[in-house]
């Protein structure tokens, strides 16, 4: 494999270019994740062979196909239990679950909840584009109200799920929200998540110009990017109360939970 780009050593470059549409935010998240991992590796915290990435089904889940780690691309919604199986048998692995909002919050929601409750020592990165992308633009549990999708042709009647609030209510060590408009923050939060035991959850607000953008009238990636950027607020210590996503108005980024309790693995095996 030819290494050209500085992150190429972490990629199966023979499979590039990837399948994501032009301007899709997933690539930005993966790029930031790889820089965070690279920083840990260069600081000697772990090696490339210690990293395991697991994903379910969906656009984001395709990430594992391109990653040059031990990787698993399993079934819809079930990446977290697979990851737990890995982690309890090989506690030295840094196990990262990558998925979209459909994969992690809808079909996989129950596993998210219970792995957070266990403070299981895995990192879950949820790329939230507020829509089902791969299947062509259906409503997601994260879709804002009133938005048109192919399965809510008269507008979405449901309140969107606030994952930050949900996961923060559980016994977890780290909850943060980043956005593809601020790649440095994604990198920093993933780096921080990988620096601790226990469960860590990072929601990355992303853009899907092809589907979500089309639904809301921002088909152009740059326009959608700038629209999202206009809503973003960063806070060093945001409160859970301000974590609701109000599309068009305000999306607050920051580290909502930042603790260092013992994770499940320490309870299982001792220190």
């Amino acid at each position: 494999m030819d290494i050209i780009h500085p992150l190429d050593r972490y990629l199966r470059t023979d499979r590039l270019p990837h399948i994501w549409c032009p301007g899709c935010g997933i690539g930005i998240v993966i790029s930031a994740m790889l820089r965070a991992i690279d920083r840990h590796i260069s600081e000697g915290h772990f090696t490339q062979d210690d990293v395991a990435t697991v994903s379910g089904i969906g656009c984001t889940a395709r990430a594992t196909l391109y990653l040059n780690f031990d990787s698993a691309h399993v079934i819809h919604g079930r990446a977290i239990p697979f990851a737990i199986g890995l982690k309890v048998i090989k506690p030295n692995l840094k196990v990262i679950v990558i998925g979209g909002d459909g994969d992690i919050a809808a079909i996989g929601g129950n596993h998210l909840l219970h792995s957070a409750r266990r403070n299981m020592d895995i990192t879950v990165i949820m790329v939230n584009n507020m829509v089902y992308g791969m299947t062509g633009g259906q409503v997601a549990p994260t879709t804002p109200m009133k938005v048109y999708t192919t399965t809510t042709p008269y507008g979405n009647l449901e309140y969107p799920l606030n994952l930050i609030k949900l996961v923060s209510s559980l016994n977890t060590n780290y909850v943060a929200r980043a956005s593809v408009t601020h790649p440095h923050l994604i990198e920093r939060y993933i780096y921080n998540a990988l620096s601790r035991d226990g469960f860590s959850f990072i929601e990355v607000i992303s853009i899907c110009p092809e589907v979500f953008g089309r639904h809301i009238g921002f088909r152009n990636p740059v326009e959608l990017f700038n629209k999202l950027k206009s809503m973003i607020k960063f806070k060093a210590k945001p409160s859970i109360d301000e974590s609701d996503i109000v599309w068009g108005k305000e999306i607050v980024l920051g580290e909502y939970v930042n603790e260092y309790k013992s994770g499940f693995i320490k309870l299982l095996y001792g220190s």
Partner: peptide
């Protein structure tokens, strides 16, 4: 290691993960 999961779906997926970690599961 013996773990009780939230449902059978999680259980068998964790078994598959553990098997890929090298354990008989």
């Amino acid at each position: 290691v013996v773990l009780q999961f939230e449902d059978e779906i999680a259980s068998i997926n964790a078994v598959i993960g553990a098997s890929w970690a090298g354990a008989k599961a």
